[in-house]
Design a binder for these strands. Structure first.
Length: 677
RNA sequence: GGGCCCAUAGCUCAGCAUGGAUAGAGUGUUGGACUUCUAAUCCAAUGGUCAAGGGAUCGAAGCCCUUUGGGCCCGCCA
């Protein structure tokens, strides 16, 4: 389909518009219009040909004529100039002013359907081999993953797959905050509150830590405020690195991480490297970056005598001043520092600026939370010397890629995980802080868009599901809370879905063996979870409802998988491969056939759309539309048992192409398409 | 007080970046289609002042401004 649009675009640009203008209005400069008109050629909606251009609307203003008349002239000129050959049969003007085009489906079908079987089907080169580093997951290693984390993980993994498909060289990181307060909390629990190191039967270590230790320890803080000091001390000991507390923290976080990775791997999510915060802290990267910030005048030592006195701060980090419009002016060229200090002087005249400043080093000399993100961001962009060694992770990662982890002072090989672009997947509550990091990276590296915070709205619990977890709420939704134990565990959701999918599969195939049922129900439950997490836009809050999420009908992964299984069954029953050469002109007797071919042929455009906008939803919707087209075809056009062997061959070829296409499209969002359901 | 995001059918959402033809799905409700390549499917009916108001445009669900309602963020916590 992309070839069709490109052909029309070029012919319009080349001579059609120019000649049509000359004919309509001899005085106008048709050549100028042809060169400068920002017209578009896109796929038509059903009933209006195959492709459509808005050129006539745009010319209407310039020529002071009605779009309808101009459309007529363009179509006439197109047909006159291109009487034969090419993918377009004819151009047809529409009274509304759209210029429509009808494709030569015999030719186009052959291109599309033969392409669908290739390994490169849907590949795009828009990435041009650019190294891109994606970071996602990054869950504190003191708890099992809940359904809110799953959204992050699936978005991150799917975006990575899409970028890879569109020609980017992608590396995927998972940041492990193994020395934060949340880890300190479980260490306090194990060391001082008498919890056993062994989880109860039926729970993973990660679930045990999150459900029991973390929740109960934070409850104890509330009833016994004196523990607060213990918590502080423990955090310091962990950051120190050489203490007993640090060793215990290391053991706990490694065990929790191992469980978290099992959950991720089960969902077909894989990584290239695990980055440990403790390594970042001990690497000395912060000092180097802090010096650079000081050199570049991006931080100030606050001497105002106000509440931030004695702290290093980033001025005007919050509020309107952080907007991107202002940045381009300041960061542009070498006059940057004078420009920014000038702007700063002006700002100081308005009184309450102080609370817009962001403290990054406390008056006692320690770095704040956001300060840890800054060197890491710079490292991801390759802006600092890499202090890490890399060793293989202890457990082999399924999926074929090697999983590395950072190390200090030892290394199994030289690695480079830096990207020209960096995409960090974090929920939108962090947008404020991420904006600061992003702005700083823009100053470090002149291209301002190199560091992207890919934000998404959170997952909340529907009132029904919240109630089922023991929380009474009169609101429509409730926010999850790790501290209060109010969340839905990812493994449990998977397990519920798997049981339901297995039951549904057995209902249809009572004699099927256990391994097959297991494989199919796994594909369905993984697919269902992944699809639910990406099918809507990133800026929509998802109110997770346990009941509703178990549905396998309608706009779900299983709908799409089912269409694939139906296609497989036809191919199986046919008992033969379609011939290499079929008469593609026979496909088109039914509208559903053309619609299906058109859907198959739109894959590459969906990939590019998704990659450009970092939008997994685009591919999810593509998969759904593809399945809808196939089901319509399936209902209307019989494939097997036709009297017409030529038509049967052609339709069989179409079915096989669809089967390839749906497998690849689902694969792009990390979903397998089973042959039988 | 400042900032970010959302508002389209009873419910959950596409469409908005790049304005153009009859605003689409799913779900729900009602009715219909399995002796046929799998009914996890399909067909039909039902359901919309695109939050409100204003502006620019030949033309707005989409762009600009204002307002309302909702969510989130704004600590020398992490």
């Amino acid at each position: 389909m992309k070839a069709l649009l490109e052909e029309i675009r070029q012919r319009l640009r080349h001579d059609v518009i120019q000649d049509a203008c000359a004919e309509l209005d001899g005085a106008s400069d048709g050549g100028h219009h042809a060169r400068t008109l920002p017209f578009d050629v896109s796929l038509s909606r059903p009933g209006f040909g195959d492709a459509s251009s808005n050129a006539a609307f745009l010319l209407a203003g310039r020529l002071k004529m009605s779009p309808s008349d101009i459309a007529r002239a363009i179509s006439a000129k197109y047909n006159e100039r291109n009487p034969l050959g090419g993918l377009v049969v004819r151009s047809v003007p529409h009274p509304s002013g759209h210029v429509n085009f009808e494709a030569d489906w015999a030719q186009l079908s052959e291109i599309i359907l033969s392409g669908a079987g290739l390994d490169t089907f849907g590949d795009s080169e828009i990435g041009g081999g650019t190294p891109v580093t994606v970071e996602h997951t990054s869950v504190n290693p003191n708890k099992a993953l809940h359904i809110g984390h799953v959204r992050n993980i699936i978005i991150g993994d799917t975006v990575s797959r899409i970028l890879r498909k569109s020609g980017h060289a992608v590396k995927v990181l998972n940041y492990v905050d193994d020395s934060g307060l949340q880890v300190a909390d479980v260490v306090v629990g194990f060391r001082h509150l008498g919890f056993s190191m062994d989880p109860p039967p039926g729970k993973t270590f990660a679930q045990y830590c999150g459900d029991e230790i973390y929740v109960k320890t934070t409850q104890r803080y509330d009833s016994d405020p004196s523990l607060e000091g213990l918590r502080r001390d423990t955090l310091r000991e962990i950051e120190d690195g050489s203490t007993e507390a640090a060793k215990l923290a290391g053991v706990i976080t490694r065990r929790v991480l191992a469980d978290q990775l099992q959950t991720c791997w089960r969902l077909s999510v894989y990584y290239d490297c695990l980055n440990f915060e403790s390594h970042i802290i001990r690497s000395g990267m912060w000092g180097a970056v802090f010096d650079k910030l000081k050199d570049m005048n991006l931080v100030d030592l606050d001497r105002s005598g106000g509440k931030n006195d004695g702290c290093w701060v980033i001025r005007d980090a919050h509020g309107a001043g952080a907007g991107r419009g202002e940045d381009t002016g300041i960061s542009d060229g070498s006059s940057g520092s004078s420009g920014s200090s000038n702007a700063r002087a002006i700002r100081k005249e308005s009184p309450p600026e102080e609370n817009r400043d962001k403290v990054i080093v406390r008056s006692n000399g320690t770095a704040t939370y956001i300060a840890k993100d800054i060197p890491y961001a710079a490292w991801k962009l390759g802006l600092v010397d890499d202090p890490f060694g890399y060793v293989r992770y202890d457990v082999e990662q399924p999926g074929g890629t090697t999983l590395w982890q950072t190390a200090l002072g030892r290394s199994d090989g030289a690695m480079n995980f830096a990207g020209e672009r960096v995409i960090t997947v974090i929920d939108s509550r962090q947008s404020g802080l991420q904006r600061i990091v992003s702005d700083l990276m823009g100053r470090f590296k002149s291209s301002g868009s190199a560091y992207v915070h890919l934000a998404y709205e959170s997952v909340t619990l529907s009132s029904d599901t919240a109630r089922a977890l023991g929380m009474e709420t009169d609101k429509r939704q409730a926010h999850m809370s790790g501290r209060r134990g109010l969340y839905v565990d990812a493994d449990s959701v998977y397990e519920e879905l798997r049981k339901k999918a297995a039951a549904e599969t057995l209902k249809r195939h009572p004699d099927m063996g256990d391994p097959d049922v297991a494989r199919i129900s796994r594909d369905i439950s993984v697919g269902t979870i992944r699809y639910e997490m990406i099918k809507q836009d990133l800026d929509k809050v998802i109110a997770f409802d346990m009941e509703r999420s178990l549905s396998l009908e309608g706009d779900t992964a299983s709908y799409i998988q089912y269409a694939g299984a139906r296609a497989s069954r036809i191919l199986e029953k046919a008992g033969r491969e379609p011939p290499d050469a079929v008469d593609f002109g026979l496909l088109g007797g039914e509208d559903a056939e053309v619609a299906l071919i058109r859907a198959i042929g739109s894959f590459e455009m969906a990939v590019e759309d998704a990659a450009r906008n970092l939008s997994p939803k685009v591919v999810a919707r593509y998969c759904h539309d593809l399945a809808v087209s196939f089901n319509a075809f399936y209902e209307r056009s019989r494939v097997l048992g036709l009297d017409d062997p030529g038509l049967e061959d052609a339709r069989l070829y179409l079915v096989r192409s669809f089967r390839f296409a749906v497998t690849r499209a689902l694969g792009l969002v990390g979903i397998s398409a089973p042959d039988v359901m």
